[in-house]
């Protein structure tokens, strides 16, 4: 379908649509889309529910959305909360909120400044994770993988001064992490395999296998059970 002949879909307030092909789709308020959606731009400010697969060049979610299907696009930005019951794929995925993907998540670039749960494989050329909330993935694989502790910010620090054991220690949890260049902080994993592996503070890793170089920072909270050179 020609892009020019596609119309826009805009829901302001409460509304619903059956889905279909659109140029730009915007939900401000509460919107339900009951079917597959294909569009150039998708913006959800508020509450969005899509019962179907979504294909969109640019996707931006600033509120809360649930997609009961797959989300495929070029640019995906999540500023709020998003749950995807299928897989997520794109060229550039940026997560600044809470992202939940039930299956695999694949992208050229994956950046996260928040928390996420990925039920399958997180696969990206470049993975940059700044841990600001609980991060979980079954498997992580890619070329460059960087995981850093985001630190606690404002309100978390304040509550932390009142109660013990708060904030909850936020970590990245994964079964396996495999990549060419890996740098990890605050990561709990069973196996880490890679070309160049560097382990930073707060890591709990059962087995590290590396091909070229291995480095470990001098923090006392690092626990590595076994290290092997291939």
């Amino acid at each position: 379908m020609d892009r020019k002949s596609r119309s826009d879909l805009r829901i302001n307030g409460i509304g619903s649509s059956a889905g279909g092909h659109f140029h730009s789709v915007q939900i401000n308020g509460k919107g339900d889309i009951n079917g597959d959606l294909e569009c150039t731009d998708l913006e959800i400010n508020g509450l969005g529910f899509v019962r179907g697969n979504v294909k969109s060049n640019r996707t931006r979610i600033s509120g809360k959305s649930t997609i009961a299907g797959n989300l495929a696009g070029k640019e995906v930005i999540i500023d709020g909360m998003s749950e995807i019951t299928g897989g997520l794929s794109g060229d550039n995925i940026e997560n600044r909120g809470m992202l939940k993907v039930s299956k695999d998540c694949g992208s050229e670039k994956f950046t996260s400044h928040g928390g996420f749960t990925i039920g399958g494989l997180l696969n990206a050329g470049s993975i940059e994770i700044n841990i600001y909330g609980p991060c979980k993935a079954k498997e992580v694989g890619g070329e460059k993988i960087q995981v850093r502790d985001g630190g606690t910010f404002g309100i978390g620090k304040f509550i932390g001064s009142l109660f013990q054991g708060w904030p909850l220690k936020t970590t990245l949890t994964a079964d396996t992490i495999e990549g060419d260049d890996i740098y990890l902080e605050c990561t709990t994993a069973k196996i880490v395999r890679g070309g160049n592996v560097k382990i930073g503070k707060g890591c709990q890793i059962d087995l590290v296998e590396y091909k070229n170089t291995f480095q470990k920072d001098g923090f006392s909270d690092i626990r590595i059970n076994e290290t092997r050179k291939l």
């Binding site: 694949g106 992208s107 696969n123 990206a124 050329g125 694989g141 890619g142 070329e143 460059k144 495999e178 990549g179 060419d180 395999r193 890679g194 070309g195 291939l230």
Partner: peptide, 15 residues
């Protein structure tokens, strides 16, 4: 080891 490719390549091809 046998093919001489890296993890990154394998994951890229899978993607």
């Amino acid at each position: 080891e046998e093919t001489g490719i890296s993890y990154g390549q394998l994951y890229r091809w899978k993607r």
